[in-house]
Design a protein around this nucleic acid. Structure first.
Length: 404
RNA sequence: GGAGGGGUACCCAAGUGGCCAACGGGAGCAGACUGUAAAUCUGCCGCUUUCAGCUUCGCAGGUUCGAAUCCUGCCCCCUCCA
């Protein structure tokens, strides 16, 4: 693994771009200027998931550190994920097997490689040091940490006030996560603001052991496509890094207009000055909001796919949504002619357009179904002969069926 | 160990013997409108062979013509006190 030389003259404002807060900035700057190769930590759970633009806010920052020659560590919380972060939402998590964890890391890497340089990326697992840790060691660490400090956490206070409980493991979680920073000798951790408390604990533990406390680069949470909640997989309001170009583009087009500035500066690699110019042009009426949004969509698709893909996705969007034409990549399903006649409702369900016959009946009744471009309002319709048909549900769900 | 509160559909949450397939909100789906997959408005939103039938309100029994609602046992969750 070949590493770039450390760039001690890197522009710090560029390096820290986008961060809402840098804790311990001064000490960090000294290290950079002295030409030290920093250990840059970013922790993730090895759960199976689609990485999305919200995470990419961190990855882009990590990439800049890589480019400046520093060691970026992707810390896999394979030990702590067995315990469960106090999100207040998680039920007891199913325990992941070693194989699952490795498979998840693998899939994660194929997603982050769109942003990070995986050649120099260092992967560590916190089971490396937490597994061999003895309870006595942990308790000894506990003799030097104040419980009151842990209780301060606003989430705990809120939950207690709301009459909800706090579990012992949740209470201790920050200690384990903080220990990671010590084990890695982290110089800086890049994470979303939701991790601030845990990472501050890391600073404290590092100091207990005589280490320099890590700096914290706290990145803003990107809102989801609904414009209200933060982007997250469980809320389904996310734009995945590995999603197909048309999906990414379409989802970008669906964000509320007033989210555009945020997406421009957090989700694209455009310099902040360019983002400002674009939004100024919109404000002054020189550019339409739709054009600005389309440009945003292209920029994002281009970043995770290619310029060609961005063009194609835009064309697809114009065709399907503006001109209401049929896209050219409609999924096709083969149906055996032996089962003729085939009832429309059961076809809709087997083809995956509806979850039940009742839902299909509803869609047909409401005029949301088209067969070969023609509205079909008869839920008792049957396909009686072999052949090819285009089924459209609503505006954007298409399936081509081939009976025969 | 004691006292109290609670478990309802994908999520939140009403309902405390029939008018309950179950109020309301969110999510989702469809229609209208729109530059948009935004916002707004309208409709739908357990399953089925839909003028009807079937299965649902933590689990298992029971009372009753009839239960999400009452009784018994069990499981789980939360708060306070010890």
């Amino acid at each position: 693994m070949s590493q770039r030389p450390v760039n001690r003259d890197v522009n710090l404002d560029d390096l820290f771009a986008g961060a809402t807060e840098i804790i311990g900035r001064e000490a960090l700057e000294k290290k950079i200027r002295a030409g030290e190769r920093l250990v840059v930590k970013h922790g993730v759970d090895p759960t199976a998931r689609d990485l999305h633009l919200g995470y990419a806010v961190n990855y882009q920052a990590m990439r800049r550190f890589q480019d400046a020659g520093h060691t970026v560590v992707l810390l896999i919380g394979d030990y702590t994920c067995r315990i469960g972060d106090p999100t207040g939402k998680d039920k007891t998590r199913p325990e992941l097997t070693r194989e699952q964890i490795e498979a998840n890391i693998e899939s994660m890497l194929t997603q982050v490689d769109r942003v990070l340089d995986v050649e120099t990326l260092v992967i560590r697992r916190n089971s490396e040091w937490l597994d061999p840790m003895h309870l006595a060691d942990f308790l000894r660490l506990g003799t030097r940490l104040s419980a009151a400090r842990l209780w301060e956490r606003d989430m705990f206070q809120r939950r207690l006030a709301a009459g909800e409980g706090v579990m012992v493991h949740e209470f201790l979680y920050p200690v384990l996560q903080g220990y990671d920073s010590y084990a890695l000798q982290s110089d800086i951790t890049i994470n979303g603001s939701d991790q601030k408390f845990n990472e501050l604990m890391g600073r404290q533990i590092q100091q207990l052991f005589g280490q320099d406390p890590q700096a914290l680069m706290i990145m803003p949470m990107l809102p989801g496509t609904d414009g209200v909640e933060k982007m997250s997989q469980s809320l389904g309001n996310y734009i995945g890094l590995a999603e197909p170009p048309e999906e990414q583009y379409g989802k970008v087009m669906s964000i509320p207009d007033d989210l555009m500035p945020l997406f421009y500066s957090l989700a694209t690699r455009l310099p902040q000055s360019d983002c400002d110019d674009i939004m100024a042009a919109v404000a002054e009426g020189r550019t339409g909001p739709m054009d600005a949004k389309m440009r945003l969509g292209r920029a994002i698709v281009e970043q995770y796919h290619s310029a060609d893909a961005a063009q194609a996705a835009e064309q697809h969007f114009i065709n399907v949504h503006r001109k209401k034409a049929v896209p050219d990549d409609v999924p096709e399903v083969e149906l055996p002619a032996g089962e003729l006649p085939l009832g429309l409702l059961s076809v809709l369900t087997t083809v995956g357009l509806t979850k039940s016959n009742g839902e299909g009946r509803r869609v047909v009744k409401q005029g949301g179904l088209k067969l070969d471009g023609e509205p079909l309002r008869d839920d008792r319709f049957e396909f009686t002969a072999p052949g090819e048909h285009l089924i459209q549900k609503g505006k954007r769900h298409f399936v081509r069926i081939r009976i025969g």
